[in-house]
Write a protein that binds this DNA or RNA. Structure first.
Length: 249
DNA sequence: AGACATCTGGCAGAAGACAC
DNA sequence: GTGTCTTCTGCCAGATGTCT
């Protein structure tokens, strides 16, 4: 007797990955949020993706995808989150493919290790919620939708808590943190309010004598260094208020 | 010395919550 | 509706430090 599990046509299962990054050295002004994309032979940009192989989990597929296409090894600090499942039967011209989209972030130091011949970093600007395209060019398949969703969620989190995607390596100054938030939100922020909002969720970096560590790498008065106060993130992300914007210079 | 950047603290006004 | 209190926000001044 034939099995129902084999009698019906089934979609191919795939994983696509939205990789967000800050392509310029973290800490400088005018940072811009970037997206790691691959260039297909036909010239279209696509997200890194991979089919799920037989007897393989989604998580294993994501890990293999990151290793194969981004030279990234899995580690505890690497945060990968699922965005959504994309199941429009016509979404892929090659056939019936259901994709489980994920999002992660890449520190600047890892960008140099990307295979240059196939990967590139596209700048992300604009607000999809205001009817504007985020990517500089249309991506293949429904990858624009994945990017839009990932960026919208990232921006919502960056309103509430300090660098939730870990784009900035701790310790950092308040200005460095603000520049990263401005890059993600693509809008200048009010410095005073930003500092007041974030400080409760940060702790000062201390030296061996318990004194606050200052950095002289910034221009002007040496700035104090901070890192995330571990138990604070959940509280921060529950906060109700969006950050106030500053007029563009 | 002057320009510039950052940090800190204070002040005033707006907005919301609450009691009456 | 009114008054009071709290919280949030924007603005400012002063101190501190680097760079030219």
């Amino acid at each position: 007797m034939p099995s129902a599990l084999t009698d019906y046509p089934r979609p191919n299962l795939a994983v696509d990955l939205v990789v967000l990054t800050i392509p310029e050295p973290a800490g400088s002004r005018h940072l811009e949020l970037g997206l790691v994309a691959l260039r297909r032979p036909d010239g279209r940009a696509v997200l890194p993706g991979r089919f799920v192989h037989e007897r393989q989990t989604i998580r294993e597929t994501v890990i293999e995808l990151m290793a194969e296409k981004l030279s990234l090894r899995p580690r505890r600090s690497l945060r990968v989150q699922m965005i959504d499942v994309y199941d429009d039967p016509s979404r892929d011209e090659r056939g019936w493919v259901v994709s489980v989209a994920h999002v992660t972030s890449l520190l600047t130091e890892h960008l140099a290790r990307l295979p240059q011949e196939t990967t590139e970093v596209l700048p992300l600007h604009g607000r999809a919620d205001r009817g504007r395209r985020i990517t500089p060019e249309p991506l293949a398949y429904d990858h624009d939708e994945m990017v839009t969703t990932a960026v919208r969620r990232a921006r919502r989190r960056y309103e509430r808590s300090p660098d939730p995607l870990g784009l900035l390596r701790a310790p950092y100054t308040l200005s460095q943190l603000r520049h990263v938030h401005e890059a993600v939100l693509d809008e200048p922020l009010k410095r005073d309010t930003f500092n007041r909002r974030m400080l409760p969720y940060l702790e000062a970096e201390l030296d061996s004598r318990g004194e606050p560590v200052l950095t002289s790498e910034t221009v002007g008065r040496p700035a104090q260094l901070y890192r995330l106060r571990r138990a604070s993130v959940r509280d921060a992300e529950a906060g109700p208020f969006p950050l106030p914007r500053s007029p563009r210079a």
